[in-house]
C-alpha cells in the first residue's frame, strides 16, 4: 500500500463521514439491531418473568452443555451468543454495500471517476484501495457495534441479574473471520455490478437483490450452525473467505478503463 493509495482511502472514508445521510443510515441500523433489540429483550425477560413455557420448550431442545440452571440467564445467553451473531453477518453486508456503492458508482455518477483514472495508479491499485476503504468502514461499523452492544447489554445484564454474561468464543470467529469474509463478498459483488450501474441507488438496489438471498440462506441457518460446533463455524468462515478471495481476484481480471467509463 503506497502513500497514493492511502490518500485515496482517506478521501473515501472522509467522503462517507462527511455525507450525513449515508452516515446516519450506516450507523442507525446497526445500533437498532445490536443495542435496541437485545435491550428490549433483556428488559422483557426481567419484567415479565411469569410465562416461560414456550422458552422452556425451546431451551430443552438445546444441547445439554449450553443449558444453564437459571432460566433467565439461559435465555439471555441464547440471545447473546446465538441470535446476536446473525446480526453481525447482516451489518457488514449493509455497511460494505453503502460504502462500496458510494465509492465506486458514486464516483462514476459524479464524474470524478475519470479524473481518478488519470492518476498514476494502476487500475488494480485504485480498485484495491477502494475495496480496502469499503472494508475498513464495514469492519469499523461491525467492531463499533459489537463494542457498544457488549457494553450496553453487560450493564443491563448486570443490573437485572446481578452478574455478567460475557460473549463466548464463537464471537471471535464471527467477528474475525465470518463478518470480514461476508463484507468482502458484498464489496466484490458491488464492484462487479459497478461497471453496469449508472447511479448509486441503482447499485445499492442491485446489491440488495444479491444480498437478500445471502441473508435468508446464511442468517436463517446460522443460529443452528453456532449451536452445533465451533469448528463447523470456523470451516464456514474459511469457506466464505475463500469465496471472497476468488470473487475478488476474478473481478480484478475483468476490469478495464473502458468498462469502467462506459
Amino acid at each position: 500500500m503506497n502513500t497514493m493509495q492511502s490518500a485515496l482511502i482517506k478521501k473515501d472514508l472522509r467522503g462517507i463521514t462527511a455525507n450525513k445521510q449515508l452516515l446516519v443510515a450506516m450507523i442507525s441500523v446497526p445500533i437498532v439491531l445490536t443495542v435496541v433489540v437485545p435491550s428490549i429483550f433483556i428488559m422483557l425477560i426481567h419484567f415479565m418473568p411469569n410465562d416461560f413455557s414456550d422458552f422452556d420448550a425451546m431451551l430443552r431442545m438445546l444441547p445439554i452443555d449450553i443449558q444453564l440452571d437459571n432460566m433467565n440467564t439461559a435465555i439471555i445467553s441464547l440471545l447473546l451468543n446465538n441470535i446476536m451473531p446473525v446480526f453481525f453477518i447482516i451489518i457488514p453486508i449493509m455497511a460494505a454495500s453503502i460504502m462500496a456503492a458510494s465509492s465506486f458508482v458514486g464516483e462514476k455518477e459524479k464524474r470524478t471517476l475519470e479524473t481518478l483514472l488519470y492518476c498514476p495508479l494502476s487500475l488494480k491499485q485504485i480498485f484495491r484501495a477502494k475495496i480496502l476503504s469499503s472494508f475498513i468502514m464495514s469492519e469499523l461499523v461491525s467492531i463499533l457495534s459489537f463494542t457498544i452492544m457488549t457494553l450496553v447489554t453487560q450493564i443491563e445484564i448486570f443490573l437485572t441479574t446481578g452478574s455478567l454474561l460475557l460473549p463466548n468464543i464463537s464471537w471471535l470467529v464471527v467477528l474475525l473471520l465470518l463478518s470480514p469474509a461476508v463484507s468482502l463478498i458484498a464489496i466484490t459483488l458491488i464492484v462487479r455490478g459497478s461497471a453496469r450501474a449508472q447511479t448509486m441507488e441503482e447499485s445499492q438496489q442491485r446489491s440488495a437483490l444479491l444480498v437478500l438471498p445471502v441473508i435468508f440462506l446464511v442468517a436463517g441457518q446460522f443460529m443452528g450452525i453456532i449451536l452445533i460446533n465451533i469448528w463447523i463455524l470456523l470451516g464456514l468462515g474459511a469457506l466464505l473467505a475463500l469465496i471472497a478471495w476468488i470473487l475478488m481476484n476474478g473481478s480484478f481480471q475483468k476490469i478495464s478503463y473502458e468498462s469502467m467509463l462506459r
Binding site: T3, M4, A7, L8, K11, R111, T112, T115, C119, L121
Partner: peptide, 23 residues
C-alpha cells in the same frame, strides 16, 4: 469535460488531494 472533482471538498482540498495522488 467528464473529469470532474469532488463537490464536498474545497478548491484547495481538491488540489492537495490530487497532488498526493500523484505522489
Amino acid at each position: 469535460e467528464h473529469a470532474q472533482m469532488y463537490g464536498n471538498l474545497t478548491g484547495q482540498e481538491n488540489l492537495v488531494f490530487y497532488g498526493t495522488l500523484f505522489g
